[in-house]
């Protein structure tokens, strides 16, 4: 299955980079793995100086003007750097793209640079080729469920993503890494991240359905590119298991953690230290052995 050819031939060797609050805090392992992957591939990331919070769901859910203002300040900084902007967090990506569209619609000048999520970056065939060439420890057929969630792809009028009902960037990635992407029902279903504090009963229900769907597809783990999805899936399944000991529990990986594990020299167990569900055993045997 070849990835769709993208127009440009050359891979860009430098991006500006917007980590967002999650990657500087609760999702620091996502940030670490993004930095590691780009360093190993020889691509420079320049963090936006003095970036501010994008406003996340709370701003746009309650005040549209504030949401646009918060995101627009970051876009102006990105415009000054003049490089395409890489945004690994799904919610930040969504807010920055929405602000870009809103500024355009108001006749204003958006950043003048492209805003890319890792999903868009992986859709460049050149990128997958480079990752494949760099793989040292393939996944040896490990079956994983690629989970895209909501904001990386929806709505296409904001994200400019062409494959939104059945996205494939992580499916292709898992194959390139030597694993087996599970075909499953819940790859773009919402995990209820924004309700996790206010209505954990709803979040529990949605997460339970997603985990059980992945298990039905014989997946041994779930792969995501969203810090809210990762935290929400990981913590809610533990709560579910406390209540029902038969409830399945799967490790939840960031796509970049898997890339790093496959292409780096180190097999250090430290990589998984931040995880509430330790995936080390799954990756040590039999996969990922040099």
């Amino acid at each position: 299955m070849a990835p769709e050819e993208t127009k440009e031939k050359e891979t860009q060797e430098e991006y500006s980079y917007y980590p967002g609050c999650s990657l500087h805090g609760t999702a620091h392992e996502y940030e670490d793995s993004v930095q590691e992957v780009f360093r190993l591939l020889g691509i420079r990331l320049t963090e936006l100086p003095d970036w501010n919070c994008c406003g996340a769901s709370s701003a746009h859910m309650t005040d549209h003007g504030l949401a646009v203002d918060l995101a627009a300040r970051n876009l102006r900084i990105a415009g000054r750097l003049g490089k395409d902007l890489l945004v690994p967090c799904a919610a930040c990506f969504h807010r920055l793209k929405a602000a870009e569209k809103a500024m355009g619609a108001q006749g204003g000048q958006a950043a003048g640079v492209r805003i890319l999520h890792l999903n868009d970056w992986l859709r460049r065939s050149e990128v997958l080729r480079r990752i494949r060439e760099a793989v040292k420890r393939p996944l040896n057929g490990l079956r994983l469920a690629p989970y895209y969630g909501c904001l990386i792809t929806r709505p296409p009028s904001v994200t400019d993503v062409e494959e939104f009902e059945n996205p494939r960037s992580m499916d292709l990635l898992i194959r390139v890494l030597g694993g087996e992407p599970g075909r499953w029902s819940h790859k773009t279903e919402c995990c209820g991240g924004s309700l996790t504090l206010g209505r954990s009963d709803i979040t529990n229900t949605l997460v339970s359905r997603i985990i059980k769907a992945a298990v039905r597809a014989d997946a041994r783990g779930i792969v995501t590119m969203c810090p809210m999805c990762q935290a929400n899936l990981e913590s809610n399944q533990l709560e579910l298991k406390q209540r029902d000991r038969g409830h399945p529990v799967l490790p939840i990986f960031y796509a970049t953690e898997l890339i790093a594990a496959c292409i780096s020299d180190s097999t250090s167990g430290k990589r998984w230290k931040a995880h509430l569900v330790d995936p080390a055993g799954l990756l040590d045997a039999p996969a990922l052995q040099p």
Binding site: H60, M61, C150, R154, P155, E165, G193, R199, I202
Partner: peptide, 11 residues
């Protein structure tokens, strides 16, 4: 308040 802003409906 329970709408999770998942954008499925809009899409």
């Amino acid at each position: 308040w329970l709408c999770a802003s998942c954008e499925t409906c809009t899409t």
